[in-house]
Design a protein around this nucleic acid. Structure first.
Length: 454
DNA sequence: AATCGATGTGTCC
DNA sequence: TGGACACCCTCGAT
């Protein structure tokens, strides 16, 4: 096998990428070429933007758990569960969500986002250059930064090790799926390519059945045990595998998405080849993501053009909802992926307005859209005019009260205005005590993207 | 198999 | 300030 170096086929013209890059080696860590990383505190006030609610029913009532309990007790319609009341209360509260903190720690686009499974204000974010940051946004400067190789290092998938949350499973264009810690040590390499002709595109892990699954850009899916022993490696798709996801409850159920325009569901215990799937879901376009819902009962897929789908376990064969939504693919954009809220039947996804999309309206904004998973209806949009880029990645934290977004080079943290205000006061105090204060107020907005300003 | 076009975001001049 | 251009290997159409 050829060494992992530029190839004619790959059209790579730069020197071998595994060598230290003279241009990059002296660059401070973290940091952009000539721009220091930026860390921002959101404005958190009402003027910061608008969030548009499209709920039916009354407004202006404190939509809290108390409200939900009250509603439930009133029991207007018996089929409306307490859970549903809670979800409604949560949707109302989104009206008050603001950007709480921002960070722009990389010298390339953000490609990957993963919340810490237990620590509520900590997340890992990966970049196109292979950098990874572990960031606790509630504590100033509490970050770990693992430097990547630069060009060609792109992080394609991340998953915290469920058995040791100081470690991350990482798949990368640089040619490995491996387990690393935040000091940069490689604990184990699960698979590697010795060529730039293909690379790994996604990882998932099951603590229960102790397996690691990874997909590659040729359509192969590899199943390994936690010790790194390969169980099988099979070409399950005709084109690049874009996403692999294990069912959180049923750990032998695997979903794979591909640019071959299919999503396939597999029984891990009996995979023999391309056609041994349990279900196949043909799509209109290449598919970027297929996430099982937290309760394992649904599957959410995002294609590369203008469709989000919800499938239900009761009937995998046919989608429960086809949701039209503009999020077309573009070479220099991190593919947009819709994700589930961890507690409610809600879907979050970034909008990339498209004049050719059927529902296009002039002056459409690059919002974050929330859909109800059971009705398929859009319930709410989040928007901040100071962060007007396309928001490719959106994930709620495991608690479900904070949203992390990836917008180009930037990471945005959204939470409830009251919490934002309270916490920001504390942060600004600490900043000014440490001489980091910026006139005692938040960042000055930049015309395009506030987080880039410093 | 090879070529082309789409068209976001940041840097440099 | 605005325009050129890099990014670096994406995907669909031809």
């Amino acid at each position: 096998m050829a060494s992992k170096r530029p190839t004619v086929l790959g059209k790579r013209s730069s020197p071998p990428l595994q060598l230290p890059r003279s241009k990059r080696s002296c660059v401070r860590v973290p940091g952009r070429r000539n721009v220091p990383p930026t860390w921002g505190v959101g404005k958190g006030d009402a003027a910061a933007g608008w969030n548009q609610l499209e709920l039916t029913g009354q407004r202006g009532y404190p939509h809290s758990i108390i409200w939900a309990l009250h509603q439930h007790k009133l029991g207007g319609a018996p089929r409306i569960s307490f859970q549903h009341c809670l979800q409604k209360a949560f949707l109302y509260s989104l009206d008050c969500y603001r950007i709480f903190r921002t960070a722009s720690p990389f010298d390339r686009r953000t490609t990957c986002l993963e919340w810490h499974p237990t620590h509520p204000s900590t997340l890992a974010v990966g970049s196109k250059g292979g950098d990874i940051i572990l960031w606790d946004y509630e504590v100033l400067d509490k970050t770990y930064f693992v430097k990547g190789i630069g060009a060609g290092g792109s992080i394609t998938g991340m998953k915290f090790n469920p058995l040791n949350t100081s470690q991350l499973f990482i798949s990368s264009v640089a040619g490995t799926t491996s387990l690393k810690d935040f000091l940069g040590n490689t604990i184990r390499v699960f698979t590697s390519t010795d060529t730039w002709d293909y690379w790994y595109t996604s990882v998932d892990v099951s603590a229960k059945s102790r397996v690691v699954v990874t997909g590659d850009s040729m359509g192969n899916v590899i199943l390994l045990n936690m010790d790194g022993k390969e169980i099988w490696n099979l070409r399950l798709h005709k084109k690049k595998v874009t996403h692999v996801a294990l069912n959180p409850l049923c750990d032998w159920l695997l979903a794979t998405a591909s640019v071959d325009q299919t999503v396939k569901i597999w029984d891990l215990r009996q995979v023999r080849g391309k056609s041994s799937f349990v279900y196949q879901m043909p799509h209109e376009r290449a598919v970027s993501a297929a996430y099982f819902s937290p309760d394992g009962a649904k599957l959410l897929t995002t294609d590369q053009h203008s469709e989000i789908r919800v499938y239900s376990a009761s009937h995998w064969a046919c989608p429960q909802h086809l949701i039209p939504h503009p999020h077309r693919h573009f070479q220099h954009l991190t593919p947009i992926r819709a994700t589930w809220h961890p507690r409610y039947d809600l879907i979050v996804v970034g909008r990339y307005p498209d004049p050719n999309f059927a529902g296009f309206t002039p002056n459409e904004l690059r919002t974050i859209d929330l859909f109800d998973g059971s009705s398929g209806k859009m319930m709410c949009q989040l928007y901040d005019p100071d962060s007007s880029g396309i928001i490719s990645l959106n994930k709620f934290n495991p608690m479900g009260d904070t949203l992390a977004s990836a917008m180009g080079y930037n990471i945005l943290i959204w939470s409830h205005r009251e919490i934002v205000t309270r916490k920001q006061e504390g942060l600004i105090k600490v900043m000014s005590e440490q001489g980091l204060g910026r006139g005692g107020s938040a960042h000055q907005p930049s015309p395009r993207n506030r987080p880039r300003q410093n």
